[in-house]
Design a protein around this nucleic acid. Sequence first.
DNA 1: AACGAAACCTGCGCGC
DNA 2: TGCGCGCAGGTTTCGT
Length: 271
Amino acid sequence: MPELPEVETVRKTLKKQIIGKKILKVDILYNGIIASNLNDFKKKIINQEFIDIKRIGKYLIFELNNYYLVSHLRMEGKFFIKNIDDDVVKHEHVIFTLSDVSLRYHDTRKFGKMYLVDKDKLFIDTPLINIGKDPWDKSLNIDYLKEKFNSSKHIKTLLLDQSIISGIGNIYADEILFKSKINPLRLGKDLNDIDLLNIISNTKDILERSIEHGGTTIRSYTSSLGVIGHFQDYLMVHQREGMECMMCHNIIKKIKVNGRGTYYCPNCQVK
DNA sequence: AACGAAACCTGCGCGC
DNA sequence: TGCGCGCAGGTTTCGT
């Protein structure tokens, strides 16, 4: 479930439920989720307390007393709060037993990762060492994008590059390009100042509006923490292949860009 | 060095 | 009904 707005929704919801609580026990049912040294992870995390939950790009940053627990949900990672004695269900891979509740990490495809990072090394260690600018960072400006987009890669690919801007995924990349009237196959180096300005402002605008609606819940994905977002009702192109463009009534097309399904309006987004 | 492809996993919907 | 294929909100690793 994870692009920036969905992760932000999880962060807010989770924060209300676990701040101030201590980790009494951790059960790891599928080791692949833990990207750090497994034994260190298990040992260090016991008796740590949740101080705060932040978000950087698509990463959830759980602030503990002495560490950051950094979690990436990848395609289908979800957190749930359950009763401690509830049965463990299929696809629950990491179970944190807190004083009065059970925090459970559920991930059908097992793609998600968790890292335990020293507090003074958050941006020095993996996975955040190369993280790009936050969409609302004031230094994310035309000059920055001119340099980073000076490439023969397609703009869709560049928008998905987390070391340039952090938090944009496949749904919002399509929406940002539609609103900016930029064809996904245009090359980064061919964009002009107006294009870059549009990308900067539309990225913030679309992500903000999605956060207001609790993110996007599409396909049959069940949502994290029982929270269902509604921004899918406002998507202009994503998953609308064969349907009429909301702006010009031409037919929305679907292509592949860098292996990712990409939706656009050939009339609004001329190459 | 830089690019696309494959890998990591599971489940669903489709056509035959 | 069953099988095989393609597809999925992501990122890292492997080959050419």
